[in-house]
Design a protein around this nucleic acid. Structure first.
Lengths: 200, 200
DNA sequence: CCATATATTTAGCAGTAGCTACAAATTCTG
DNA sequence: CAGAATTTGTAGCTACTGCTAAATATATGG
């Protein structure tokens, strides 16, 4: 029941700065000193006190990412149709991965694709989050088939894997410098796979 | 004009071991000690003497990769038709990225997607190699349109970007644990985009 | 003011990073 | 065998890694 010395920095703003660094440099490419510098924290103990160790901070940064730059993903699943959901998801990815206000690409993809044994926990966390996205899309497409939006003959699981692959490919393309316009064209091409109703 | 002490290890075999480590752990996740250990070299100076510094070794490893596990890429471009080239390329990627004899994924994608400033040269090297692949595919598809294999109305550049995105998405999927069978299904779905001749 | 609680600062831990100077070892040429 | 050429082994460099103990500073509640 006491106050204690107040924090000298804003936690959410600091997390945003940390997100930028992890996003740009990846988990292993980011040092604690990079983080404290970017976050406006003068010394390591303050960081550890506020956010735990590097791995815990990384998870908090990922949550912040989901609530911020990657918010379009949740909005995609709020769309009335599965097709609109996928379109919102992929075009949103094209925009988000080339946003000039943020590093290129997607932290979930480039944060730790391959890493040393010491960073496997971070890598596994990212793998799990990507898998969760694919699962959510699969459930949405299954529902679309139940609802009749997708023809009875279609394979929603395969379709989910396909669009997830597009999504992740876009992230790699963006990291490599692809233009936003080109990414949107890729999405348009990818969407032509969408099953047509068997209007016989 | 003299002989000098002979090398105690086989250079190509050592490069293969180094490739495995870089492939699994990425450029920044790999330490010199990881390399010497895997390569069967007892001390760092021997490595530096034989292959230069870490970055130079990485480039030699990438060349070895292109001549070894990624040889299917060149074979793809030897196919008689552009369609066969793309199919060979993508199905080859599905196989190569899930080969039980090698780490999962593609070193060109996961070697250094995001990195610290100190590793930017390695990252740029990978970006350049991915871009070179896309360029080769673009040229092949342009030729296919000139040859009449692709309809006059198609956009070979856009198609090249699309298939490159699939390729890189497959690499991410494989790194995340996707099964070989699923990757082949994704390729089949992706190929349905292939333009049909306007047989009017 | 005092006790408590929290945050910051200073200093530094053990470990590893990539890399190298230097001497010893092993080879070929003459 | 002498000498030149090359590789290996030993030792160690500076810098940095993630992290922490202990002391200090700043707040609240009684």
């Amino acid at each position: 029941m006491a106050g204690g010395r107040p924090r000298s920095f804003d936690s959410d703003a600091a997390l945003d700065r940390a997100l930028e660094v992890f996003w740009r440099q990846g988990y292993e490419g980011t040092g604690i000193s990079d983080l404290t510098k970017a976050m406006g924290i003068n010394n390591a103990p303050s960081l550890y006190n506020a956010f735990g160790n590097k791995e815990q901070l990384f998870r908090k940064v990922l949550d912040r990412y989901a609530d911020g730059p990657a918010r379009y993903i949740r909005e995609a699943f709020d769309q009335p149709t599965a097709r609109a959901a996928v379109e919102t998801l992929l075009h949103g990815a094209a925009d988000a991965t080339t946003d000039p206000d943020h590093p290129r690409g997607c932290i979930t993809v480039q944060g730790a694709l391959a890493c040393s044994p010491g960073a496997e926990a971070a890598r596994d966390e990212l793998t799990a989050r990507r898998a969760a996205g694919e699962t959510a899309l699969r459930e949405r497409l299954r529902r679309a088939r139940s609802d009749g939006e997708l023809p009875a003959g279609t394979d929603p699981d395969g379709l989910a894997r396909y669009f997830t692959t597009i999504y992740q490919g876009i992230a790699v393309q963006a990291a490599g410098g692809a233009s936003r316009e080109h990414l949107h064209q890729i999405v348009d091409t990818a969407m032509t796979v969408w099953p047509r109703p068997a209007d016989a």
